[in-house]
Design a protein around this nucleic acid. Sequence first.
RNA 1: UGAGGUGUAGCGCAGUUUGGUAGCGCGUCUGGUUAGGGACCAGAAGGUCGUGGGUUCAAGUCCCGUCACCUCAACCA
Length: 475
Amino acid sequence: MANDSFVEQIADIEKDFPQWYTDVVLKTKLVDYGPVKGTMVIRPYGYAIWENIQAELDSRFKATGHKNAYFPLLIPMSFFTKEAEHVEGFAPEVAVVTHAGGEELAEPLAIRPTSETVIGSMYSKWLQSYRDLPIKINQWCNVMRWEKTTRPFLRTSEFLWQEGHTAHATAEEAEAETMQMLAIYKEFAENVLAIPVITGRKTEKEKFAGAVATYGMEAMMKDGKSLQAGTSHFLGQNFAKAFEIKFLDKDGSQKYAYTSSWGVSTRLIGALIMAHGDQRGLVLPPKVAPTQVVIVPIAAKKGGVVEVCEKLKEKLEKMSVRVEFDNTDSSPGWKFNEWEMKGVPLRIEIGPRDIENGKAMIFRRDTCAKDSYDLEDIEKTVLKLLESVQKDMLESARARRDGRIVYANSMAEILKGVEGGNFVKAGWCGCRECEDKVKAETAASARVYAEGETAEKCAVCGKKAEHVIIFARAY
RNA sequence: UGAGGUGUAGCGCAGUUUGGUAGCGCGUCUGGUUAGGGACCAGAAGGUCGUGGGUUCAAGUCCCGUCACCUCAACCA
């Protein structure tokens, strides 16, 4: 390619993936670093992606009977001590407010790292009868976890997410809810983000602090590492007992409810970047791209070009395509590279020559192919291409991932697999020692159980395998 | 928590070794010529050098303190 000078601006995706990631998020103006350590400013371009993610998810939540609400940011510290595992898991990363109004507070207040406790306390108040169940509430909010190492979108002190919290009369119902939301996340990740994910149960070591069972969805990034892109937890009666979430059942007895919680965060934006990006920058799937189509005029000052572009823009807008007409003064080459870096799925180039021939060039970002199309009813071509980009991005991501799933029968094979940037499936006896050993010797962690698969022996100790686990290095 | 690094114009940086007029590139603004993969000419604006103290005739530069951020490692549902 001729744009070497441009390529130099971002680190080599093959050689230095972390630096490539940092370069891309900053140069495309998705984020900037905030003034406080570990915080990020989500800039308009990044926030627009989040808004699209929100809209898609929110409609799915509502369609399955959930309602949105908002709970307070500050949580009394004493709430955390009510659930033993929960406090142990979160205490190290909780930020605490000790002073307000110029005085020291009688009880320190935690800035929520997650809201099971405060929501649990409210549910206990609201829940009286089996007729009040199920309670199915979601909230969109920010949370804070004081992490030692941070990276924009992937791990920041403060981040945006949604957390769903439900209460049910029976364990079966709560489990069904847990699995339903996991399925919704998976469908969303694949159909909207074009990221194929593997869902499954997490090991005891990796599960949410206070849960009975945690299910996660794991996505493979371009470097072969895994990113936990969402979780859904069956909380059993753990939080119900800690917060007295009780109801009078049909049979006249008081019972503890069964609860679930589930969430995805702005980390999904990090997943988008690392699952699809290439040497030129971002590659965004049309369904979440803030701008789906950019029109770049060539020789815009020559007669008629601007008019044709503007007319096309209007047509596309009428068809609800998010379109931008870049009529700024920069040179075409500059614009090409800029919009490619920003990951816009389609670019339409229109110049005097095209207009003469009744044509326009369309460049698609996912394949970097550029072809000439009839200008007449080009809007139909655009719709078709947008669909095609959306679909092809998922397929190529799936093919890439499937080619990187390998099996291992020994520690050496696990190590070789994860070093090569693969998801490694291996038999596991189920004991914590073997799981820890894998982590210590290969830097890979158990991501999820490979559902429906069996193995003879544990790849670590050689004893009878109880499960097949997917091991991978992870973000 | 450990080890490194960086704070100078909107952004990216040089200048610090050896103290002496505050620099460069990009961007921005004005005017003009251009235009199919980062165009060009001419002109212009823009800085209490992170912060506090000290040494000195003189500090971006030397000394002491302090704050912040970044990177790598460790840690992390």
